Computed example of a mutant assay.
Amino acid sequence: MSGVSDSGITVSKLLQKGNQGLGTFVRMDGELLLLDGAVYQLQAEGKIRVADQDDEIPYAAATHFRSQRTVTVKLDTKDSIDAVLEEFNDHASNLFMSYRIEGVFQRLKCRTVKGQEYDGQPLSELGKKQFVAEYHDVEGTIVGFRSPVAWQGFFVAGEHMHFIDQERKIGGHVLELQAREVNVGIATVNNVHIELPTSDKFNSVVMSTDDAGLKSVEG
């Protein structure tokens, strides 16, 4: 959110952290989706590329995903996912949850950011020029995390999810969704490891939790 995104870990290092995840790339050039050992860059205008092993990542969350339960559900809205997660574990509001949604989505609204136009440009400003696309009756996969409210800033409190279609041609950060019948694999996460940057730029910037800005760009 503070715009410090000009360096990070490599894709090859991220792949050591898990088999499923999301994030962004250097200078916030598009959305990142990690799925089954492959890292995809979901770029503006709906384009997708497989990331190179030495591409750098300033922010990502990843997990070694193994579903503890898979359910088949109808999702009327993005908020419907909360009800599914609560039914799985209604005592996990202060824990992280990871999930994978697979199937045909009746409607999806996704965004991708085009990358910083100048050094230090904050995400809240980038969000005003984000590319937004709506897809209908598209088959694919959503990778998501639900993070506790107390972790806002380190993560996106609540739901944070990225989509990629089955043919790996379209995708992005999910703003809205609707599905008649999809499979949702769910796992609770209570072991969290955090690695912070050590650059001078990261340590010199004044950081605060931009709650309003985060909500406006992450949906």
Rank of each mutant, 00 (worst) to 15 (best):
E102N: 11
Y118L: 15
F105A: 04
T112Y: 02
K114G: 12
Y99Q: 07
Q121P: 11
F96N: 02
R107A: 04
V104Q: 01
Q106K: 14
P122H: 07
F105G: 08
Q121W: 11
G103V: 07
N94S: 06
L123A: 14
D119P: 09
C110N: 04
G115Y: 03
Y99G: 02
K109T: 11
K109M: 05
S98A: 09
K109Y: 08
M97N: 04
V113Y: 11
Q106P: 01
S98G: 10
K114W: 13
Q116K: 08
G103P: 00
P122D: 05
K114F: 05
R111T: 13
M97V: 09
Q121Y: 11
N94E: 11
Y99W: 01
T112P: 00
I101A: 08
F105W: 09
K109N: 10
C110R: 03
Q121A: 10
K114Q: 14
G115V: 14
Q116I: 06
F96T: 05
Q106E: 13
P122R: 13
D119A: 09
T112I: 03
Y118S: 13
K114C: 11
G120W: 11
R111D: 15
Y99F: 10
I101F: 05
L123S: 14
M97T: 08
L123I: 14
E102F: 08
V104F: 04
Y99T: 00
N94T: 07
E102G: 03
S98R: 02
I101M: 03
L95M: 01
M97F: 10
R100A: 01
G115Q: 12
D119K: 10
K114I: 07
R107P: 06
Y99R: 06
G115R: 11
E117V: 09
D119C: 03
R111Y: 13
G103Y: 09
L108F: 01
Q106V: 08
R107T: 00
S98N: 03
V113P: 09
Y99N: 05
E117Y: 12
E102V: 06
D119H: 14
L95R: 02
V104K: 06
N94W: 10
G120V: 13
L123H: 15
G103S: 01
L95V: 01
L95S: 02
L108T: 04
L108K: 04
E102Q: 13
L108N: 02
E102D: 08
E102K: 13
K109I: 09
F96I: 08
F105E: 04
Y99C: 00
S98D: 00
I101W: 01
T112M: 06
L123E: 15
P122V: 12
Q116L: 01
N94M: 07
P122N: 12
E117H: 15
G120Q: 14
I101V: 10
P122Y: 10
L95T: 10
E102M: 07
Q121E: 13
L95Q: 06
Q121V: 03
V104I: 05
R107G: 07
L95D: 04
S98V: 07
R107I: 06
I101N: 08
L123D: 15
C110T: 14
E102C: 07
